[in-house]
Design a binder for these strands. Sequence first.
DNA 1: TTGTGTTTTATTGCCTCC
DNA 2: GGAGGCAATAAAACACAA
Length: 306
Amino acid sequence: MKVLDMEGSAAVCGGSDSPKQTQKLKFNAESSLGSKTMLSFGAVGGVKRSGNMFFSAFDQEEFGDEYLDEYLNQQEKKRRLTVDQIQFLERSFEEDNRLEPDRKTQLANELGLQPRQIAVWFQNRRARWKGKQLETDYETLHENYETLKTDYDNLLKENDKLKAEVLRLKQNNLGGDAKKANLQSYYSKGLPLEANARSISEDEESKVSTFKNEEQNSAKSEVTNLDSPMLSDGVHSPLLESGVTSRVVDPNNSDSLQNGEDNLHEELLQPDRVFPMIDDAHCHQLLSSLYYGFPVEDHAFNFWSH
DNA sequence: TTGTGTTTTATTGCCTCC
DNA sequence: GGAGGCAATAAAACACAA
């Protein structure tokens, strides 16, 4: 059964009794011809529907009644909008993708379409826009995820490298007397390492330099702070306080690290420089702070204690 | 020409808001 | 309860390879 809704568009009714469907079953006096109302679509507003086979055919007088009857009896076909109509609707959609009743009527008049067709077009257009939006949102999120994953993987690699280094140092008896004595010697006297001992790597040296540099600065400004971690000689140690590891691996601090190292080298060359002595326990603390940023007592695996 | 996949137009049913 | 929006879906129109 073919029926017309209030706006004149045809619909095939399956017998639904929903409120909306009930409304669509209301006929006016002119709608009893069904598809004939459709014929009036092209005349609304006087817009020529070029490219529309239906209307271009029936615009011509020479078509006889048999064609009209055939047309009126056939079920309505969908007709695509013209390029001009679509462009017009697209521009309107860009201005506002919502359709106020007045705007709908105006567009319908200008394009020679039924208001219902305008509403349907906007509805479908919003659906397409939403799908596209979901696509772009997904791509953005995916890119962010990939960036974060790369960062995370790099951190894992860095972490593995540090763990391997710790293991290697442990295997080389870093916690043993030779290494500790070596480090203590380096720290307290500023002497070069023994040739038969494993050389302190540049990285380790840099950490020691950072520590030394910060120690020097802190000693000047915070020597009265009794709550801060202290070395045995009473010199404040920001290294033990805040954890040097994060600063050491932070690329943003590379300049300060380099400066610290240069300062230490200059300082070590001073003939009258007096270095504090550290005992065995503080040597442990120093080593643990270099690699973990907190005292050795807090480590999950305290390999120096074995 | 035809089969098939995609796009567009339109309908249906449900929901929310006033 | 009516109006309008949305998701799901139908079906016609279209594109295109074989």
